[in-house]
Write a protein that binds this DNA or RNA. Structure first.
Lengths: 195, 195
DNA sequence: AGACTATCTGAACGCACGTTCAATACAATC
DNA sequence: GATTGTATTGAACGTGCGTTCAGATAGTCT
């Protein structure tokens, strides 16, 4: 008994990535074995190497896909307007997008250290690209006198940390809806930066 | 050659914990071997078991010590006053205290998942104790009409996430001093919650 | 000087790891 | 129904893991 009935590369590939994402996020990169991932997919460990050259590359591709997804989703939504309007859009987007990808968010913050130097720099660069987009909004608002943000870069860090923190406590079906959470955080952010 | 000259339990014990803290924070709990910790201390792996019953307990004790240290340090500083004064004290304390313990902070946020259920609950309870202290300040300020915080618990989460985020970008000897960072964050926090 | 005890070594235990690869089973094509 | 190519197995490789423990050494006490 080798290949299972109905198995295909187009099916197994995504299932490998999904299982790896889930397990890496839950237990940590180093704590998850290739055999565990294979078991979750329903395949032997050797078969994983049809879909990734090695374990670290599997992690890197998950992180890379997450960052590219994040940035392109924001760029697709960004539609001009005043700084205040754009900042509100950013706040609500960041919360909504990240809440829909808890495992990937968690992985992005925990397992950068498991990458080699080259892969690390790539992900770090993408993160900086994202931070720059928020910083630009803050700078523009400050230039126009709408915001009072003496340190745009540090403020961008502070806001992103605060917004991403939602993923650590939000529970589906809890007392607060996603929209209500968006309202609460936008109220805080608006007051924190407004002139 | 067994015991080295001048070695004592009171010396080796702390060195084991220090090495474990450093390595766990840098590479992750699962990625660090007992042999690596032993090598950093200058001892054979077996000797570590004079100081911890097993690897997970070593991690747990580091996390536990960190949380107890955090809470008792805050309780020692807390000295009454109005909500605004106490909140400012909290903001500056949290930043200063965490910046002085980067490895422990990182570990606390990354490796809770590496604990068994019982140990996990213990640390989680201590974290909740700490969050409660901030929440109480926010609630009191809201009751007195000094703050406008409709959701004390969520706001406490948001502020702690924002403040703890300093540890991810702050660099010793960089452009901003610790005090200046404290000023910046206090300015944001004050505006975010004030009525 | 000799006994005692705390501290540590060094080897060993069984097990699981990431990765490779020849053999094999299935799906698609003719 | 035979042929071909892709997806997968299953076993194996060497390595390192957490943990245990008998024995050796160094400091302390009498």
């Amino acid at each position: 008994m080798a290949r299972k009935t109905g198995s295909h590369s187009e099916i197994t590939g995504p299932r490998v990535r999904a299982a790896a994402l889930r397990l890496f996020a839950r237990h940590g990169f180093a704590a998850v074995s290739m055999r565990q991932i294979a078991a979750e997919v329903g395949v032997q460990a050797g078969a994983l190497y049809l879909y990734t050259p090695d374990k670290e590359t599997l992690l890197f591709e998950l992180l890379h896909e997450h960052m590219v997804d994040l940035i392109s989703a924001w760029d697709a939504i960004e539609a001009g307007g005043g700084p205040e309007e754009r900042l509100e859009r950013f706040v609500r987007f960041h919360i909504r997008h990240n809440l829909a990808r808890l495992d990937a968010v968690f992985l992005s913050y925990m397992e950068l250290r498991s990458l080699g130097p080259g892969n690390f720099r790539t992900i770090e660069g993408l993160r900086r690209d994202y931070e720059n987009r928020l910083e630009a909004i803050l700078q523009e608002g400050t230039a126009l006198g709408v915001f009072s943000v003496p340190e745009g870069r540090i403020t961008a860090f502070a806001l992103i940390a605060m917004l991403t923190g939602v993923t650590t406590w939000f529970r589906e079906g809890g007392r607060l809806s996603r929209d209500r959470v968006g309202d609460l955080y936008w109220a805080m952010v608006r007051r924190a930066v407004s002139a």
